[in-house]
Design a protein around this nucleic acid. Structure first.
Length: 458
RNA sequence: GCGUCGGUGCCCGAGCGGCCCAAGGGAAGGGACUGCAAAUCCCUACAGUCGCGGGUUCAAAUCCCGCCCGGCGCUCCA
């Protein structure tokens, strides 16, 4: 299996530290506001990676944190006359609901930064003791230039970073070098604080993920992921902290590209974001359609999400669902273990090359088309083709072939469909069409097949 | 400015030196099936060429160099 490793800067062979097992850490959100499409892309990207690995029989340990203490949360608490824990709790719940609706599997571990302060303090202690960090009244800072390899993840030397950042770095007398960054921030009035050997305060952003990832997954864990806007400073600094502490950090780095709006990155700071909730509210199909959109674009490519893109994806999705409906109607035996081996091989080849989901989806669509042909001609391979298409789509989290939710009016609808069949048999097409139109108005679509009529909710 | 990723049909978007007269999805036109639809299938037009210009190679959308354009990053960010 190959993947594009940000650190190496190229596609490399992915060799987990332990055969058959993959440890994956993906930076989670800071919980103070609505999750937007950018968060959705990140979560779905790693959800797809995880699902694919698990489908391949690999045991995955997926960790995604919750950053529940930082400036944004503190500010929000102030604005709302609330407390930081309350703000974090509320937005964590919102985040969880949204991700569940998107079909994103819960990570196996989801550490909260505030629950790992002890580990962070320990890590900082090591850094202070070995001279990689220094403490003063304002906090504890990492001596960036003492870290070998600093900037390797962004492919920049410390000098290059300092030069580029010149205009942006605030002069800060507390730092020995402008590049240094805070591991621990001394307490400010009105802010939540924890005790530490350097006085009361709170952890810096980067140390949180370093402590949580190493703490749960251990040294030299396999994969660290996140949005590509986190490469610097966040991931660069996490890595620097671990290296400076003499720990082996993530072996491979995977970064997903941004979601753009009007050609620009969607972000909270630009205030041009669409919340996931808004998108989900627009159409019940959108949760799965969004996954289609993301699967049909490579994860390292920027992506524009708008109503047109979503509409196209919904049509695409309907095509897959229609095949399943037709297969079931033709008497598909879902317990069959027959599969199309060639398609699975192609699918694997696509996914094993840097998670080539667009190509993997092409094999799914090919199966869908061939399954439809087989269904139409009552061919025996309808079963393996349909089941393979379903299995592969589901390996990517598309939730295909799930039983429709029963509605209160199912009996009523069944009766009307039967009435229509009777009217058709009597060649009373006017009545039959009227029933069909009435049902359509209720959101029920009726389709005729050689094996009788089928109906479904739009 | 520096780093990094990219620029492929009407739209979205794969393409990992020969299997590329360039996948797949959507939309379009025609046809089959149907009482009519829907769903499905088939066919067609779509990229005479892959931002532009050089180069390497028997062979380039794919590798190298330069230029143009765009995204992201350069201490809030998924």
């Amino acid at each position: 299996m190959k993947l594009f490793d940000t650190l190496a800067g190229e596609i490399v062979d992915f060799v987990p530290r332990k055969a058959g097992e993959v440890s994956l850490y993906a930076c989670g959100p800071t919980v103070y506001s609505h999750p937007h499409l950018g968060h959705a892309r990140q979560s779905i990207t790693y959800d797809v990676i995880r699902r694919y690995l698990e489908w391949s029989g690999i045991r995955v340990h997926h960790v995604a944190n919750i950053t529940d203490i930082d400036d944004n949360i503190i500010n929000r608490a102030k604005d709302e006359d609330s407390t930081e824990p309350e703000v974090a709790k509320y937005w964590t719940e919102v985040y969880d609901e949204v991700m569940a609706d998107l079909g994103v599997l819960s990570p196996h571990d989801r550490p909260h930064a505030t629950e790992y302060v002890e580990e962070m303090v320990e890590l900082i202690s090591v850094l202070v003791e070995n001279g990689s960090a220094y403490a003063n009244d304002s906090g504890v800072y990492l001596r960036v230039r003492s870290v070998p390899d600093y900037g390797a993840l962004v492919h920049r030397t410390p000098d290059e970073l300092a030069e580029g950042a010149g205009a942006r770095i605030e002069v800060d007398d507390n730092k020995e070098d402008p590049l240094d960054f805070a591991l621990w921030k001394a307490a400010k009035p009105g802010e939540p604080t924890w005790e530490s050997p350097w006085g009361a305060g709170r952890p810096g952003w980067h140390i949180e993920c370093a402590a949580m990832s190493l703490g749960i997954l251990g040294d030299g864990f396999d994969l660290h992921g996140g949005g590509n806007d986190l490469v610097f400073p966040h991931h660069t600094n996490e890595r620097a902290e671990a290296i400076a502490a003499g720990r082996e950090f993530a072996k491979y780095w995977v970064h997903n590209a941004m979601v753009n709006i009007g050609g620009e990155k969607m972000s909270k700071s630009l205030n041009n974001f669409t919340t996931v909730r808004e998108l989900l509210d627009e159409d019940p199909l959108n949760a799965r359609a969004l996954r289609i959109v993301l699967l049909q674009t490579h994860y390292r490519k920027n992506l524009e999400v708008n109503t047109k893109v979503m509409a196209v994806a919904r049509e695409t999705l309907k095509g897959i669902d229609a095949m399943v409906r037709r297969a079931d109607n033709a008497g598909l035996d879902r317990t069959s273990t027959a599969r199309d081996a060639d398609a699975i091989t192609k699918f694997r080849a696509a996914m094993d090359h840097d998670f080539g989901t667009p190509e993997a989806m092409a094999t799914v669509f090919d199966l869908v088309r061939r399954a439809n042909i087989a269904i139409d001609s009552n061919a025996a391979d309808a079963t393996p083709l349909a089941l393979t298409a379903m299995e592969l789509a589901n390996a990517l989290g598309l939730a295909v072939g799930q039983a429709a939710e029963a509605g209160d009016d199912d009996v009523d609808i069944e009766a009307l469909v039967a009435d229509r069949a009777a009217a058709k048999a009597a060649r009373d097409f006017e009545t039959a069409d009227q029933i069909r139109a009435d049902l359509q108005a209720r959101g029920i679509t009726v389709e005729d097949t050689a094996d009788g009529s089928i109906w479904y909710r739009a």
